[in-house]
């Protein structure tokens, strides 16, 4: 619950940064903050009260092998949001690096880093 609120607040702060700042790198930082907030929200949705990590070992199941899973169902948190967020974090790094490459390229092309100077492609 608290993590959910924190995630939403981080998303709001990131969107505020993306909308109100002028410097391109600050916009990318805002994007990274939004990324972290969304990951927090997804993981908080999969939490089950008082349960432990979805790894089937002696802590959640007394038997081993094929029947261990049936006993573990009542004792672990939801594994699907973890798998999704695992994917999202790696993609987030790749997208951030690509955006920074665009920023460096724009900077090298002789213009400044203020977003108001790129007005010639406005619709």
């Amino acid at each position: 619950m608290i993590v959910l609120i924190t995630g939403f607040l981080l998303m709001l702060i990131g969107i505020w940064a993306m909308l109100s700042r002028k410097h391109l790198i600050r916009i990318v930082i805002g994007f990274a903050i939004v990324d972290t907030g969304i990951n927090l929200v997804i993981v908080a949705l999969g939490y089950v009260k008082g349960k432990t990590a979805p790894i089937i070992d002696r802590a959640v199941s007394s038997s081993q092998g094929a029947m261990a899973g049936v006993e573990a169902v009542g004792k672990v948190v939801d594994p699907i949001p973890s798998a999704l967020v695992l994917t999202a974090i790696v993609i987030g790094l790749a997208v951030t690096a690509l955006m920074l490459a665009y920023v460096i390229r724009l900077n090298n092309s002789g213009k400044s880093l203020n977003i108001d100077d790129f007005g010639d492609q406005k619709w």
Binding site: I55, M67, V70, A72, V76, D78
Partner: peptide, 18 residues
């Protein structure tokens, strides 16, 4: 989710469900 947790132990022999 419960189906995945059961199947990962029963059919695939993997302790780490993620």
């Amino acid at each position: 989710s419960s189906e995945y947790v059961q199947l990962s132990a029963e059919k695939l022999n993997i302790p780490n469900t993620v």
